[in-house]
Write a protein that binds this DNA or RNA. Structure first.
Lengths: 196, 196
DNA sequence: CTGTCAAGTCAACGACTGTTTACTTGGCCC
DNA sequence: GGGCCAAGTAAACAGTCGTTGACTTGACAG
């Protein structure tokens, strides 16, 4: 079926939905690479091939654009295994898979959080999303005693290792030895899942 | 012994060393509360009761002031126990002690790191200090197999929990239930220390 | 072919940043 | 008591930021 929206679809150069999607894609990449504050609306618009004023037209404000970027992220469905005993290795496998081939565009919610927590307005949005869409679902999946605290510890461990490995690039986690880090991380996560 | 530095010490109002120390104190507080980027030289100077130009006179630049703030921090001596089996509880006790009565001025290196990692120039300084003064000494203390990776995991866990608890203020770690979080955290840290 | 409305640009606003230069002021020494 | 140098201030510089209103341009309908 050729072109469901229009009979002839002459590849129009002025398409609001296409432009909007382009801005959103550039924003996802720059927000994860630079964080909320350092990512400027002018740079984002330039990467999308438009002017900064269009961002305010389509998203109201920079914060509105950020909210739109956040929508749909933070759900960890797909990383959780069907068997409880494979929790640790499943998460580690999920991480290494995303390491080998980075996400389609440069979008990475974990990095976006870590580089945006210095902004008070972004922080409030991030806490809300992370609590509702990640921690509490994970707590339900884990079950048992102190489930929410343990879910928080899982997320904390993932965030902490991400900070040291990908943001700070600490010498404790050299890029060539991800396997060693992951083999230490897996039983740690599994231990949190089992303590119930 | 009254006033060791000067015979009469008429409480002079123009004292370079006192002013320098005042700027440093204000900088420590604001860098941990706002991070490197959001803490402005004008606000820091105002809290110290001087003008922003004095910061450049005494510290060369904002980055020079940041370096000075960083000097002396990041060493974890005092948190480590003499017995290896008490590693987890010792660290947890250290955290809760600092929780009960916050540090003298509002200085907290962990929060300073977490809120400053979005700045590239600050990041380089932080990685250097954290690696040399915290992770590698801790790895030496831990000993055994994968000591550096495990030291990194300890720091990662502490950073991650600090992010969720003190920066994001996630509902997974309500302020009134620090004991529950700590009782889950202690065996986790002990597990990292034992895995060798 | 022309009218019309959305898509997009341009320029400017006001506020803020770190830094520098020229200046004023206060306290100690002779 | 008068010089003199350090301590400290004031003002401006050159950027950048998000946002806004008025403007131009493109594409489709009649």
């Amino acid at each position: 079926m050729p072109s469901s929206c229009s009979p002839r679809a002459p590849a129009r150069r002025r398409d609001a939905t296409v432009t909007r999607a382009g801005i959103l894609r550039a924003a996802r990449r720059q927000f994860t690479e630079l964080g909320y504050e350092r990512a400027g609306v002018r740079q984002i618009a330039a990467e999308a091939g438009v002017t900064a004023a269009l961002i305010n037209r389509y998203f109201g404000s920079k914060e509105g654009l950020f909210v739109e970027v956040l929508s749909g992220a933070f759900q960890l469905a797909g990383a959780l295994p069907s068997v409880r005993g494979e929790f640790g290795v499943a998460l580690v496998r999920y991480i290494t898979a995303h390491e080998r081939r980075p996400p389609e565009d440069g979008f990475d919610p974990l990095l976006l959080i870590l580089r945006s927590i210095s902004s008070p307005s972004a922080l409030e949005l991030l806490r809300d999303r992370l609590d509702r869409r990640t921690i509490h679902p994970l707590a339900r999946w884990l079950g048992g005693k102190d489930r929410t605290t343990r879910a928080g510890l899982v997320v904390a461990t993932l965030m902490g290792t991400a900070i040291l490995r990908k943001v700070l690039r600490s010498s404790a986690f050299p890029p060539g030895q991800v396997a060693r880090a992951m083999s230490c991380l897996a039983p740690l996560l599994q231990g949190i899942a089992d303590h119930r």
